[in-house]
Design a protein around this nucleic acid. Structure first.
Lengths: 239, 239
DNA sequence: CGGCAAATTGACACATCTCAAAGCCTGTGG
DNA sequence: CCACAGGCTTTGAGATGTGTCAATTTGCCG
């Protein structure tokens, strides 16, 4: 159930057998969701934190005029909602991009785990810090990169993260968001996103159809989008 | 030395005398900085975390074409660089907006503090989560708010945070960033920022000259900018 | 085969950027 | 106390970028 979570933590630091056992011993319930449903609602006060098991999810905020802004995309194994463990009230929603399943773990389990292993506590903290680093990269993208660079950067990020999960084959990966979803990620209109994707295709940087993205020359796309993966903290070291 | 840090933590949860004593006992060194200097450099691997004592600082990233994007502003008392305690390598720089002073606390002190009080550890974790919530609000602003709303929202945020420090008098507060700095925060050109500020002035929402901002009618500006302070977590509850 | 969601296109309005110049403050040195 | 330099703010004009609206095409699913 929690292999991906464990693998994700182990990518950043050693995990003892005891720590793995603590995680395996989490109480949890599993729930499935359809397109667009909320796994966690803005303004709610959950007593459980949720973890993506399968499928894609996103963090979303809604403005008073109904506009939506997505501030992160999450992939299987991501402990999406560690935030509410301490933040208590959600400042954003977690929404399903397509069908997905999630495990909900009671905060009491988390609290016990952290008490039993402060190191594990630091690794959960680290997970939220990496989310924050990704958000900073998004701020730079949305503020200072061109639309084509921005979408290119986003695809590099997802390539990198999905590759670790073994979900990339020959530079191709499934990426279910519609162009409307993408427009809410990059803060542009749907029409402009469409034209930007066509620009990326025309430049030969990306092939993208029926929800499968192919990156023929990753190094070239990275150069084009000014992508440097170090912010993803894919380095194993004592934390 | 650490009153503001302690006051900031106490705004979110009770702190025991022992916990306060732990903080007061931090080893530290103090350093001053001038306009634009880096307190912490992107790519570096600090062994200390830094805390703003006086003045304004910002998190900044630089793109390969030299463009700069600011992803957060920090005020006195903010434990700006808790991140590097676990992230190890900086994904961004911390820069001085004007003269400022900062305390550097060795990671070993932090580690001891957290070991001695897991609750204090959670509160430091919380501080980084609140930073992340602010970053999400910035993403929404930059992606979906109009420039005038965005700058209005930013000023509401700073009003709220500075008010807690007693740095707001009759709706006025010192805000040292130049319009060039603001343009790097909101991801617009300097010229457009200038025109947007004039628009806010013309609407009577803001007075702003010689680095002092005055908000004549805060409720009106909040309404205009769609500002809801709940993401700042100014609620005291057990964490 | 029909229906629906998603992707694509075109045309035009509006927002924002760039470049370049001018004006305005503030601190400094004479 | 004045004059000046330099940084910051403000202005104008034209080029580009991006949004909106509305229609059309495509592709998938029942």
């Amino acid at each position: 159930m929690f292999e991906r979570l464990i693998a994700g933590l182990e990518r950043r630091d050693e995990l003892s057998d005891i720590e793995k056992a603590i995680i395996e011993g989490f109480r949890f319930r599993v729930q499935s969701f359809d397109d667009g449903q909320e796994l966690v609602a803005e303004g709610s006060r959950p007593s459980e934190s949720c973890l993506v098991l399968t499928g894609f999810t996103a963090r979303a905020q809604f403005l008073s005029d109904g506009a939506r802004q997505i501030s992160a995309v999450h992939v299987p194994g991501d402990f999406v909602d560690l935030h509410c463990f301490l933040l208590k009230t959600m400042d954003h929603s977690i929404v399903a991009i397509r069908q997905c399943t999630a495990a909900y773990i009671p905060h009491s389990s988390l609290r016990e785990a952290i008490a039993a292993s402060p190191h594990l506590g630091r690794l959960f903290w680290l997970a939220t810090l990496i989310d924050a680093a990704i958000q900073r990269a998004w701020i730079s993208s949305i503020g200072r990169r061109t639309p084509a660079q921005h979408i290119g950067h986003l695809l590099c990020e997802l390539h990198e993260r999905l590759d670790l999960l073994g979900l990339v084959k020959d530079g191709s990966f499934e990426f279910p968001p519609t162009q409307t979803d993408i427009s809410d990620m990059v803060g542009l209109s749907l029409v402009h996103v469409n034209r930007t994707i066509q620009e990326l295709r025309a430049k030969g940087l990306v092939a993208w159809s029926s929800r499968v993205v192919t990156i023929p020359d990753l190094a070239r796309l990275k150069r084009f989008a000014d992508f440097d993966p170090s912010y993803l903290n894919l380095v194993k070291e004592p934390r």
